[in-house]
Amino acid sequence: MVLDKGTKVNIFLLLIVTVVFIWSVFKPAELLTWVAEVSPAVVVLIIVTATYNKFRLTSLSYFIIAILSILTFIGGHYTYAEVPLFNWIKDEFDLNRNHYDRFGHFLKGLGVIVIRELLLRQTPLTKGPWLVGIATSIMLAIAALYEIIEWLSTKLPNAGQGTKDFLGMQGDIWDAQWDMSLVFIGSILSLLIFSKLHDTLLIKLNRNSTYPKNRES
């Protein structure tokens, strides 16, 4: 079977993500925290892999999914409050916390591009203010749901250090608000920076495949 260039790139991304996942499995800082952190990414990866031949996304969306998965696997392995590079940054610049969690939430705003693609290809929405508003709102809703799950984890019987690591507040009572704000900022910047490229890739995908198309094509 001859693989097209896009498929080769996507397989390469999957291999990188798989290698990082395998690395993250070995001696994580807290096993239950690792399971809680990586599970959503693993579910998404299983879905996009299983549906690849029936519903192929743009290379940009797959790249974003890969980046966010790797981000999650690293955070799950060390816990978000103890990622070494950001501990070094914390010490070097005399910061009051490890900011990997904040950095991660900012990057999670990239996910709005994947949502944008699904909306364009699976709903009557077309490019414009409604698309921006709804895509951003869905991204914020996903982020809010995750914050609620983190909060609920602290209400479980015998909630211990693993739950605290999963919550990742690091003593900041406004941590959830910071996280939501950074996802919002990341989403807006992602739409501003990548929408034009995304549109080009959608057109290319529509021309070269029989997968569900952008409603504007």
Rank of each mutant, 00 (worst) to 15 (best):
T58P: 09
T58R: 08
T58Q: 13
S59G: 11
L60H: 05
S61C: 11
S61G: 04
I64W: 05
A66Q: 11
A66C: 12
I67L: 15
L68H: 12
L71C: 04
L71S: 07
T72D: 06
I74S: 02
I74G: 01
I74Q: 01
G76D: 07
T79I: 14
Y80D: 01
P84Y: 05
P84A: 04
L85S: 12
F86D: 04
N87M: 04
N87P: 02
W88K: 15
I89H: 00
I89F: 01
K90D: 02
K90W: 05
D91V: 07
E92L: 09
F93N: 06
F93A: 07
N96T: 02
R97W: 00
N98A: 01
H99K: 02
D101K: 00
D101L: 00
R102M: 00
F103N: 00
G104R: 01
H105P: 00
H105G: 01
H105W: 00
K108V: 08
G109A: 08
G109V: 06
G111M: 09
V112C: 13
V114C: 11
V114T: 14
V114D: 04
L118E: 07
L119N: 06
L120T: 05
L120W: 02
L120I: 03
Q122G: 13
Q122E: 09
T123V: 03
T123F: 11
P124W: 07
K127E: 13
P129H: 08
L131W: 11
G133C: 11
I134H: 05
I134G: 03
I134V: 14
T136R: 02
S137E: 05
S137L: 11
A141F: 12
I142T: 10
A143Q: 06
A143W: 02
A144C: 14
L145M: 13
Y146Q: 02
Y146R: 04
E147H: 03
E150Q: 15
W151V: 07
W151M: 03
T154K: 13
K155D: 01
K155S: 03
L156V: 11
N158D: 13
A159M: 06
A159Q: 10
G160N: 10
G162I: 01
G162F: 03
T163D: 05
K164E: 15
